[in-house]
Design a protein around this nucleic acid. Structure first.
Lengths: 343, 343
DNA sequence: TTGTACGCGTTATCAG
DNA sequence: CTGATAACGCGTACAA
């Protein structure tokens, strides 16, 4: 059989003997026609196999698609496997839940952030950018398309809704804690877009630049290894680099828990122990931090809350609201067992 | 200022002095026009503030949207907070990654599965349904819209791509393990759409019906409490019901790890101990199971692999492939510390 | 390169 | 009230 063209509003309209507009009303404005006619239309539609107005055509006409877009700096799977990202998205999703919107996850390309072509094709009424590099081209596309934008963490853009945490303050707390424990030789493990030792304060992420600033405020100069991303295996190899330095650092300041969890492994790899030989400090306080071996001392940031706030901002923009001032959430130090006094 | 209409292909075309088709070609078929003209068009577009072809209009014309839809039986946030769901989605996402498609998450309504209106409006080229109830209306909508469909776990639909595991076999393993440990008084904790004791083999989920069958094959009759969903708090309260029966069960067969984790808590609530007083058996083997207190004995199913397979099927259907036979993945028993010989 | 016929609905505005 | 007419939303793709 040759595939019969899919029925459209017109198909139904002519089958019933009314105009297309009336069929449209039967679906969208029941009060605009008699119940009897509406019934007849719906029945005919069902018998023809008409599934209701095409969502794309409808979006084209109405100019909205009932979807919240999310731009990630990482592959799609990170949304479900990176604990910090999932926590933020969990919060975001819980806010969006009940508003009958879909969540459109855009995969991050290689350069941090979705490819411009991906963003150009994504169908959403508002976009939430999760921690993209400062120069992410994806952001320009969102701007050009005139879509409302909410930024989580970074980059800092003028007149843009944003939610962030006190990264400098958090980093200071982390460093101060180790300093007070007597540590004087530090290694810093941070994340960016490429791997290697860092000399200046470069780096594509405001978040890590701020954390670096906070660390340095307290400990002064220290070797910094930047990982190409934030996951355990990168943290593990980066920590190995830091721990091979002479003199060896007695404490590792990690810009994320994932990196710190990798660092824990690296210390073991070298036959050393945490915290007896090396103290390890994280950042984020993901659930895994508490169950790590040993439990990780870290800087807690309210990840789920960050997502919720971002979701609220997105919904507000959707309603035509203004971006408003950036929301800044507090951080706090969580002392567990991966840091100890220098003996 | 009164908002100027957003520029369109036509705006650019007349600004450059060419036809709309040519501008379209400049974006989609660079080889169809001279490099110089293309350059001029793109420049003009940029100066006008044209962001490129509207994605919705393009989708309307091309009939596809470069998106994979996912229908959940739960709220959106479950995608990121329920460990079993995230693992499956992680696998699914890792397969879709690199194909430049977005993931469209549709929120589940109250009756298990997204509301028909949600599905009717979602824009995707293929839809993956994750463990929806047999009668989920969302599935009819997908059918009516003629979208390719991949089902994970259930329901069983004719001529539909599906990936599942051996639920009956897994449940038998679980029950047999406890039986061999000497247990004879069992309580079964399962999930469905409403809470209460179950008498027959009813239940909206093939998965839980199969697991129930497997349990009963081994242990015969046993009281069954059905939770309204699968999470810890429901498991906790359901387990309390089972543990208040006289005589009290010595072993709890749980249809998911989340329920089992809740059951662990319930046992503690009653001042009893696992496994000394009550053995608890899970199903799924989520990462949390290993770190539970005590570590959970459970039936392992390859969750990430299930997602990956579903992703592959989705991509195949996207290419016009046939559904093929259902994929069935194996399960295995993982013995840990939440079950013990009856003393 | 371009003309032009679709793709499929929505939403005033208008007539009965 | 009920329902119809017609303009509009923005591109794509094929024939000329």
């Amino acid at each position: 059989m040759d595939r019969p063209r899919k029925p459209t509003l017109d198909t139904v309209a002519s089958a019933v003997g009314v105009s297309r507009a009336t069929v449209s009303n039967a679906y969208n404005r029941p009060d605009q026609l008699s119940a009897a006619l509406r019934e007849r239309i719906l029945e005919t539609a069902a018998s023809i196999g008409y599934a209701g107005p095409d969502p794309v055509a409808r979006s084209l006409a109405t100019r909205h698609s009932a979807a919240v877009g999310i731009m990630l700096g990482q592959p799609l799977c990170a949304a479900f496997s990176d604990p910090a990202v999932s926590l933020v998205l969990d919060g975001l999703a819980s806010t969006v839940d009940g508003h009958d919107h879909c969540l459109v996850l855009m995969p991050g390309g290689t350069e941090g952030g979705p490819r411009p072509s991906t963003v150009a094709r994504a169908q959403a009424d508002v976009v939430v950018a999760y921690s993209l590099p400062d120069d992410a081209p994806a952001l320009d596309v969102v701007r050009a398309r005139g879509l409302p934008l909410v930024v989580i963490d970074q980059p800092v853009l003028p007149d843009t809704a944003r939610v962030e945490v006190d990264d400098v303050g958090g980093a200071r707390m982390a460093a101060a804690h180790l300093w007070e424990l007597g540590h004087r030789r530090f290694g810093v493990l941070t994340f960016g877009t490429r791997a290697g030792f860092l000399s200046g304060r470069e780096g594509a992420f405001r978040v890590t630049r701020d954390r670096l600033t906070g660390y340095r405020d307290v400990v002064g100069h220290a070797p910094v290894w930047e990982c190409a991303g934030s996951n355990r295996s990168m943290g593990r190899s980066g920590a190995r680099e830091l721990l091979s330095l002479t003199p060896r650092p007695t404490a590792l300041l990690c810009a994320s828990d994932e990196l710190a969890l990798g660092a824990l492994q690296a210390v073991r790899d070298l036959g050393l122990r945490v915290p007896a030989d090396v103290s390890v400090m994280g950042f984020d306080d993901v659930p895994e931090a508490e169950h790590a071996e040993p439990p990780l001392t870290t800087v807690r940031q309210p990840l789920a809350e960050k997502g919720r706030r971002a979701g609220e901002l997105a919904l507000r923009l959707l309603d035509g609201g203004r971006p408003g001032e950036p929301t800044r959430l507090p951080v706090s130090l969580v002392e567990r067992a991966s840091t100890a006094r220098l003996t």
